[in-house]
Design a protein around this nucleic acid. Structure first.
Lengths: 347, 347
DNA sequence: TGACGAGATTGGAACGTTCCAATTATTAAG
DNA sequence: CTTAATAATTGGAACGTTCCAATCTCGTCA
């Protein structure tokens, strides 16, 4: 019993007006008389009419859809980013296509193509690892607004919104140094990403300005996940001159580092200072509460969406590169002061 | 420089065929000659043609879009569910609208309406708290396939895919009993949901069959979140006859319970047994690794998507109510055996 | 009274595709 | 050589909306 579709014409007939008038009330035009508007609306309700956006899109060549493509929805960071986007996009009357690439650039190509076919009027992309400007070229040439988020791509010629990774890392490491740490590691993350590079740069700058040497043995890459954190800290603890603190690539890694520490009977916060990056939701409720560089992923999603909507409204806008400030949130995982770091349990 | 849209007609002209032929190759029809197909495809590439799905949808009154609405994307359970759906839906050539309701049924109404306007050909819904059959009635009457997931709604007349909550709880509590626990709490969750009800039922049944009484003071509701877990365990520890173990409403609550225990200097797994529900990704890497009832959210998403696609393909299908089996995954958080539960530190 | 303008309403064309029935070209059978 | 069958191709209508220009109905003013 797939019922007949009821169209604007049916409404028109039932209300005794023309389809144009119905269209007008659908768009809330001020041209139509109050009485007819009321009647039309009544009929719309009665007949259970549902607006056909495909038809509208076809006619006016623009949709109320935006696309968002993320790398790994399973990572809270991206999930929060997506809900931030969803919130503002929804209240602007848009709906979002969400796709997950799992860092596969092949998939990324496919989903972007598919979204274009569906006529999205803008795209928020957190580029998969290894994405190059050339990959995005056809997209940006088509003139549809794009904002890159989390990771910027040099020469892509589109807006971007990334967090101030260098400054965040700098602040975090300064904090550790102020607490008396001298052997500070940088753990986790893929070394071939711009984000990694920026965070390590902040880390190195902080060490340098304190006159500490930033030996390469202390920066240890890994997958940017909890499991990656475990392996990274294990590797760090194999070093003969072990670190006493670490700045982690992100919170997921930091949690993994905490797990790895506990597996060696070291208590994060007391025996070893760890600082994360992102300030994911569970950072504040974890035990110990994670000291981390807050990038406010949800807020970032909101800002990205606002930027995109602005560009959609403006038609053609100059690309802007926004770097979003970050702030160190000191909680427990970085320990109180270095004096407390007395117990050194070896496993 | 928003370039002119290139249409099927432009392709046709450039390739020296008719638009009908182009349409045919677009659909991969076997009717068209190999040579012309090749030529057309070449032209398509050259001109940078992008298919206009709005137009196609309009004509054939069906889209390659499915919608998924979840309650809280920030909860890994739902994020994983969405990833599972995305995976199968993507490889079937569909794309997904994802919307977050935040448990607000008002929002849910809006997003469902919006998705209908966009002509989704199916919907996967994890109903917001308090959703009733009547809320879904207009949707199901329209004949578009719907599968309810996670939470079923009596009398909705659509397919559903939920996990076997009673059996999971039963297995978990039996396990705790077998380990010697006698005072077992049920922590977290909103008491007015069907899922809560089913899990508590399993919990009570297990206690009853062991001849233990299931006093109401031991089932303590809370928000189904990490923070909720903290408050629930706090409340449980105020009891004069304290529990020694708990089955938690979900993994988020279980992690919160662990946090709360540690805040009281109790080590989860050693001093108090905790079992979660869901088997979220971080369950296995957490310390202690969380014993939990695995519902495999990603797999559940995949199955839901498959079920939905099947119904879409079949046109009109009988609603099926699938209950997905679950399995207790024993890790560390439930402790070894009750004998180890010696230390009782009061705070 | 006639002209005018504002307010409401309207019919038809257009958007880019798919589908249908019809046509042409090609091959096989008699 | 004709006819039938098959393989390829095609033009036009249709999908449900929006936009444009045109029309109609008033009331007002000279």
């Amino acid at each position: 019993m797939a019922k007949e579709r009821v169209t604007v014409i049916d409404i028109a007939r039932a209300a005794g007006v023309s389809k144009s008038t119905v269209s007008l009330v659908l768009q809330g035009s001020s041209l139509v008389n109050e009485a007819t508007r009321a009647k039309v609306n009544a009929v719309i309700r009665d007949l259970g009419y549902v607006y056909n956006r495909s038809a509208a899109n076809l006619r006016q060549a623009k949709s109320k859809i935006i696309g968002i493509v993320v790398n790994d929805l399973t990572n809270s960071f991206f999930a929060e980013l997506a809900v931030g986007v969803d919130a503002v996009v929804q209240s602007a009357g848009f709906v979002q296509f969400l796709a997950n690439t799992g860092e596969k650039s092949e998939r990324q190509r496919e989903v972007i193509a598919s979204m274009r076919e569906h006529g999205v009027s803008g795209l928020i992309i957190s580029p998969a690892r290894g994405t190059e400007a050339a990959d995005l070229a056809p997209l940006v040439e088509s003139g549809i607004p794009v904002v890159l988020v989390v990771r910027d791509i040099a020469g892509a010629g589109v807006s971007s919104l990334i967090s101030d990774n260098r400054a965040g890392a700098l602040a975090a490491v300064r904090h550790l140094i102020a607490r008396g740490h001298r052997r500070i590691a940088f753990l986790g993350g893929f070394a071939d990403t711009a984000v990694f590079e920026a965070r390590v740069r902040g880390y190195r700058d902080a060490l340098r300005e304190a006159g500490l040497n930033a030996g390469d043995d202390l920066v240890i890459g890994s997958a940017p996940s909890r499991a990656g954190g475990v392996t990274a800290i294990e590797q760090a603890m194999m070093l003969e001159d072990r670190p006493t603190a670490a700045l982690c690539f992100n919170d997921a890694v930091a949690f993994g580092v905490c797990d790895g520490l506990r597996a060696r009977r070291l208590e994060p916060g007391a025996d070893f200072a760890v600082i994360g990056f992102d300030d994911v939701i569970e950072a504040k409720t974890a035990v110990p509460a994670l000291t981390t560089v807050s990038v406010d992923p949800q807020g970032m999603g909101e800002r990205a969406a606002e930027l995109l909507l602005k560009q959609i409204k403006a038609g053609r806008a100059e690309p802007e590169a926004i770097v979003s400030p970050v702030r160190l949130v000191v909680r427990q995982s970085c320990g109180a002061a270095v004096e407390r770091r007395v117990k050194e349990v070896s496993s």
